[in-house]
Design a protein around this nucleic acid. Sequence first.
DNA 1: ATTTTCAAT
Length: 185
Amino acid sequence: MDEYTFTENFNNQGRPSKTYLCYEVERLDGDATIPLDEYKGFVRNKGLDQPEKPCHAELYFLGKIRSWNLDRNQHYRLTCFISWSPCYDCAQKLTTFLKENRHISLHILASRIYTNNHFGCHQSGLCELQAAGARITIMTFEDFKHCWETFVDHKGKPFQPWEGLNVKSQALCAELQAILKTQQN
DNA sequence: ATTTTCAAT
């Protein structure tokens, strides 16, 4: 991913009409975590501006996971950094996937919380996803930095945080915690 | 075309 794409999409104060999702996979073996570099990359959604059928980024990600045919006798942790948190529909599909694939753990780190929904309530989607075992958090400075170093063609340049990164991240984190807490009661 | 949250208006 080039620098511009990363900054344009992951800046937590922006609101681009597209979504990028960066993913990486580790195999868990007792206390050890073994990174699987062959399963690392990013996808973006297909929007109305493209010839293909519109499709949210998460569904491409699910397709990729399925194509890997990860060994059901092993345990894996998938980490995905997504510029918009999953909508209700995608959250449901991820929930179903996790229930059917107990050998896979999922950690979702979102830059921003997506709230534009037509077919349901994004809050309950995220809650169900959490209840299915997913860990859902908001990206912090360290997460943006990790993404930069892992997925961006940074040409040796260090990650440069934008103005207000931490303040926004903290605000979104509080918002997400309120969402995830409300529905547990 | 404008405003814009994986578009919607």
